[in-house]
């Protein structure tokens, strides 16, 4: 699929000699596709930069996109698609920015009626295809990076285990609890129990929007695992709607203590551990 050295030279010549026409047609086609979501000046700047990098690469004798001479061209393409991926352009729109060059080339080559023209055009088009695919790949790569970053951030911010009292830790759950998150929560909670030697854990589900059988299953597994290790769990923060759902679904929490609020749960634990509550202390002092 690579261009011959002759062809890459001719393409460079063509792009330089018809620079105005090529760039005009190129921006026209891309502008039509993006419909004003990118300013004309910005679009022109991108097209010119791409044009310059392409002429540069071809001038140095690059015969395809993987060639060493095309390093800068690849960098420009990658930068372009990264920018577009971040700004929320679709993959098609990003790739069209490159494929529009075919249109521009056609308009520049139309006048020349020699037999060589068609062969050249096909060769040039193959080069443009390579560039388009490369753009597409960079775009996908950037998007995947974004998604992975976000997923990681979500996991990080969603599972803090906080120490409430000597021997009491709490996990405030926020957001929907899927299997992956439940696993992370469970592991972190159990590890914290071991590290701090806390015999009590409070799982607060105030921030969980809905409790279905699956979520309940995850919570129950965590509680059973903690019990196996010798720690007791209390579930708190059950909102009225959630309580109704739990009963309607027939979920059984068995002998696991459930409390309406975190404060109630903490008071319950402190009573179990024998720490006296502030109220009783002050009464005794009085």
């Amino acid at each position: 699929m690579a261009l011959s050295t002759d062809e890459s030279g001719r393409l460079a010549d063509l792009l330089t000699s018809r620079v105005d026409r090529v760039i005009q047609r190129w921006t026209e086609v891309v502008g039509e596709q993006l419909r004003g979501r990118l300013s004309q000046a910005e679009l022109l700047r991108q097209v010119q930069e791409l044009h310059r990098a392409l002429v540069d690469a071809l001038g140095k004798g690059a015969v395809d996109l993987a060639a060493e001479e095309a390093t800068e061209l690849r960098a420009v393409l990658a930068e372009l698609s990264r920018g577009q991926a971040r700004q929320g352009f679709s993959a098609t729109e990003t790739a069209t920015g490159v494929f529009a060059l075919k249109d521009a080339l056609l308009s520049a080559m139309e006048d020349d009626q020699s037999t060589r023209t068609l062969r050249d055009y096909v060769a040039f088009a193959a080069m443009v295809d390579q560039m388009g695919l490369f753009t597409f790949e960079s775009y996908v790569h950037t998007r995947e990076g974004l998604i992975a970053d976000q997923a990681e951030q979500l996991l990080e911010l969603s599972t803090p285990v906080v120490k409430l009292w000597e021997g009491v830790v709490a996990v405030p759950l926020v957001g929907t609890l899927d299997s992956a998150r439940a696993q992370v929560v469970m592991e972190r909670l159990l590890q914290t129990l071991v590290d701090t030697g806390s015999p009590y854990a409070i799982i607060d589900i105030t921030g969980v929007p809905a409790v279905d059988t699956q979520v309940a299953q995850h919570i129950l597994k965590t509680v059973v695992a903690a019990r196996l290790m010798g720690a007791d769990c209390i579930i708190s923060g059950i909102r009225p709607q959630i309580a109704q759902t739990i009963v309607a679904l027939g979920i059984e929490f068995g002998d696991i203590a459930t409390k309406a609020s975190l404060a109630d749960a903490l008071r319950h634990v402190l009573r179990l551990t024998g720490v006296e509550s502030g109220r009783r202390q002050s009464r005794r002092e009085a």
Binding site: E187, L190, V224, L228, M229, G230
Partner: peptide, 23 residues
């Protein structure tokens, strides 16, 4: 009992009946 061990036991559905545990 290690956390990983406890998780595995729960996933397998094994329970240590009649055994008391501590951290």
């Amino acid at each position: 009992m290690r956390p990983a061990v406890a998780i595995t036991l729960v996933e397998l559905g094994l329970s240590l009946n009649g055994i008391r545990t501590a951290l």
